[in-house]
Amino acid sequence: MSASGGTKAIIAALGANLAIAVAKFVAFLFTGSSSMLAESIHSVADSGNQALLLLGGKRAQRSRTKEHPFGYGRERYFYAFVVAVVLFTIGAVFSIYEGIHKIGDPHAIESPAWAFGVLIFAIIAEAFSFRTAIKESNEHRGSQSWVAFVRRSKSPELPVVLLEDLGALLGLIFALFGVTMAVITGDGVWDGIGTLMIGVLLAIIAIILAIETKSLLLGEGASPEVETQIRTALESAPEVARVIHMRTLHLGPEELLVAAKIAVDHDDTAAEIARGIDEAEQRIRAAVPIARVIYLEPDLDKAAAR
């Protein structure tokens, strides 16, 4: 996985979630809190998700084969989609079920000090992980808003880790709210409410991730800014009169396919056209380094001829 894949952020999140999962489960054993159990499952699911992202990044580096002539770069999109499914099925569905069950059959919180201590520890650890994800994302976000970055990023790992860490922090706050209200009021229903809130939150995040990664799986083109750079590079070649039409497709986060029909002068020889195409490809790669697969089809400039 390249640096833009957010490996550092993934590893930071994985380490934090493994430690937090153990702490939360210990707290559940001492308190019997459904919020703590839901958060334990949430952290286990997140740990599995980060392992899937690392696996996807590793498999995407395989060399192209006869069966897959464009390589395996889009495996990173597949594993990001699997993360969304795992987050929903394991995290959200379990938490919603547990919350409804606890509301229907509430129990008092035992040894609440354990729950408060673990939740505070978990918030600190998740905040560190979230800070790492934000720092890495800022290196690639540019002037985009956070919403635009999540929606337009062609590298799925950072948006996934960002949303997971945000969901983890909010989930911890919901768990703290549920446990605190259950201890203050002596009513275990609040613990169930906190658990239900965690489940709904995870479902929302999972749906957002599924929608965004589905779009990447289906195949997204380059951003308008990148397409403009490619068009400018093409039309700056002396032998290229204009771009008749162009299509782009991300074969992976760092690999772009460019296919274009270009207009050439009807007086140009075959050698001049071939030389012009070679120069145009060089200009594209200089302007957009991720444009690694380029197909240019020459055609007569009929508009100029008329």
Rank of each mutant, 00 (worst) to 15 (best):
R62A: 15
Y72F: 15
F149P: 07
R151N: 12
S47P: 02
E157K: 02
P289H: 09
G142L: 04
A259N: 04
A260S: 13
R292S: 14
L158R: 05
I109W: 05
P289W: 12
A304D: 10
L158W: 02
I230S: 07
Y97L: 11
P289C: 11
F28Y: 15
S153D: 12
A115G: 02
Q144N: 14
L218V: 14
V226A: 09
L217M: 14
G219C: 09
A13Y: 00
V22E: 06
T65S: 14
V183Q: 04
L251F: 13
P69N: 05
I100G: 02
F25V: 07
E297I: 11
E110D: 11
S143V: 08
F81K: 06
E126K: 07
F174H: 02
A259F: 00
H250Y: 12
A127L: 13
F149A: 12
A263S: 15
M36T: 02
S111R: 13
S33W: 01
F177Y: 04
M197S: 11
I184T: 03
L296F: 08
A270L: 13
Y72Q: 08
R74M: 04
I103R: 00
I205R: 03
P298G: 10
V161H: 01
G99F: 03
G99P: 07
G199C: 08
P106R: 03
G221M: 01
L163E: 01
S137M: 09
E126D: 13
K8N: 08
K102F: 03
G142D: 04
W190Y: 15
A80L: 05
R62F: 10
H266C: 07
S95D: 08
T89V: 14
R64N: 10
D278V: 02
A206V: 08
A92M: 10
A241M: 09
N17E: 06
G15N: 00
G32W: 02
D267G: 09
F81G: 07
E297N: 10
M197C: 15
E281Q: 14
R306Q: 06
A175E: 00
V118K: 05
S63K: 14
I230G: 04
G276Y: 01
G57Q: 08
V240K: 01
R242S: 11
S236H: 13
T89Q: 03
M197A: 15
E126Q: 15
V200G: 03
G219W: 08
I11M: 12
E279R: 10
V85A: 13
D301K: 06
A38W: 00
N49Q: 08
A303T: 13
M246L: 15
L176W: 09
A168G: 02
V82I: 15
A237T: 15
L176A: 15
V147M: 13
T269E: 09
A175D: 04
D46C: 10
I277S: 00
E157D: 14
S137C: 10
